[in-house]
């Protein structure tokens, strides 16, 4: 359903709350979930939060997906680091040297398992993330077959130098491209410095080389994080069009 195209006669309530799910290694982690009222069946979406943390914008994104007819869940990837304001927890994450890609994979698969077990589930689940979450969405979508659509929104670090690899991030996502298990949506700003337009082109070339289904959309006059209306990076026209692309893509591949 496109933005602002709901029928005013409809009932489009939702339930939203923080829950606990068993994540990587069986750790109990928090997740924010929003689910439409009604019997469904509804497709599901796992939202992978960005480096600024499990924050308010991601709670809004999660509710936006529910508003558009998806069972949505956003696991707190930093949950093991303790709690506090989102920026404080993010700082702990930086101090700890980041989180391991494999842990993110397992947390996101756990979130997908939660969605598929819901009585209103259609059985199909997509994954989407922005910033570091875009990169993580690519990693998860390459290592797991649980997802039917992948959204990478300005994911930095898909293309990595060998010197940037470490035990927590041992393989560059672009080198996992042959294993990508679902269609990919990419949304990028041409003024972004990570990923740069050249890195976006590299990513696209790799997807094409391996015969993957994908669609990339690039926006002039936009940089990193141009959906974030609470930050100066916001670009209203590009963000509005980008959201339309997101919902069209997930409707196509999760219906």
């Amino acid at each position: 359903m496109a933005w602002n195209s709901f029928n005013t006669a409809g009932s489009d309530g939702m339930t939203a709350s923080v829950i606990t799910i068993p994540g990587a290694n069986g750790d109990q982690i928090h997740a924010y979930t929003a689910r439409p009222e009604g019997k469904g069946p509804f497709p599901g979406v796992v939202l992978v939060h960005h480096m600024p943390g499990w924050d308010e914008i991601y709670r809004e994104f999660t509710r936006r997906f529910a508003q558009h007819g998806y069972n949505a869940v956003c696991p707190d990837l930093y949950c093991r680091l303790g709690h506090g304001r989102p920026d404080e927890v993010t700082e702990k994450m930086r101090a700890a040297g980041g989180i391991a890609d494999q842990q993110v994979v397992d947390d996101c698969v756990a979130a997908a398992t939660f969605l598929k077990a819901l009585p209103t589930s259609s059985g199909k689940v997509g994954i989407i993330g922005t910033c570091s979450g875009g990169r993580h969405a690519m990693v998860v979508g390459s290592k797991s077959k649980e997802f039917s659509a992948i959204g990478d929104l300005w994911g930095g670090g898909v293309v990595m130098q060998t010197s940037d690899l470490n035990p927590k991030r041992p393989v560059a996502p672009i080198d996992m491209t042959k294993d990508v298990n679902a269609p990919v949506l990419g949304i990028f700003g041409n003024d972004d410095k990570s990923p740069t337009p050249e890195q976006v082109n590299q990513h696209e070339a790799e997807l094409k080389k391996h015969g993957k289904t994908y669609e990339f959309h690039r926006y002039d006059g936009a940089g990193h994080g141009f959906f974030y209306y609470h930050r100066p990076a916001y670009r209203a026209e590009a963000a509005t069009d980008g959201w339309e692309k997101v919902f069209a893509f997930f409707a196509k591949h999760l219906s």
Partner: peptide, 11 residues
């Protein structure tokens, strides 16, 4: 760190 700003109005 030098990363996403949380409060001041810069990226």
């Amino acid at each position: 760190s030098f990363d996403h700003a949380t409060h001041i109005w810069v990226d």
